Amino acid sequence: MTVPDLTDHLGYWLRQVSNHVSHAFARRLAAEDVTVAEWAMMRVLFGQAPMAPSRLADRMGLTRGAVTKLADRLIAKGLIARAANPEDARAQTLALTHQAAAFVPRLAALADANDAACFARLPDADREALARILKDLVRHAGVTGIAID
Rank of each mutant, 00 (worst) to 15 (best):
T2I: 02
V3S: 00
P4I: 00
T7F: 11
D8I: 08
G11K: 13
Y12F: 13
W13C: 06
W13H: 15
W13T: 07
L14M: 15
R15I: 10
V17Y: 15
V17L: 14
S18V: 08
V21D: 15
S22Y: 12
F25N: 10
F25M: 11
A26V: 06
A26M: 14
R27S: 07
L29M: 13
L29N: 07
L29W: 01
A31Y: 05
A31W: 12
E32K: 10
D33P: 01
D33A: 09
D33W: 03
V34C: 14
V34P: 08
V34Y: 02
T35H: 08
V36F: 13
E38D: 08
W39V: 01
M41S: 02
M42V: 09
R43C: 07
R43Q: 11
V44M: 04
F46R: 15
Q48T: 06
Q48N: 12
A49I: 07
A49G: 07
M51W: 07
R55L: 05
A57L: 04
D58I: 03
D58E: 13
V67N: 03
T68K: 12
L70I: 13
I75R: 13
A76H: 05
K77C: 04
G78H: 04
L79A: 01
R82I: 01
A83E: 05
A84N: 11
A84Y: 06
N85M: 10
N85W: 07
P86K: 04
E87R: 11
A89H: 02
R90N: 12
Q92Y: 09
A95Y: 03
L96D: 13
H98W: 03
A102T: 08
V104P: 08
V104C: 03
P105N: 10
P105L: 13
R106F: 01
L107R: 10
A108E: 14
A108Q: 04
A109H: 07
A109I: 01
L110I: 00
L110K: 12
A113E: 09
D115N: 09
A116D: 14
A117E: 11
C118H: 06
A120N: 03
R121F: 06
P123A: 06
D124M: 03
A125M: 00
A125C: 11
D126S: 01
A129R: 08
A129H: 01
R132T: 15
I133S: 05
D136W: 09
D136G: 09
R139W: 07
A141G: 10
G142I: 12
T144R: 15
T144F: 11
T144P: 03
G145N: 13
A147C: 04
D149F: 14
D149P: 15
D149V: 14
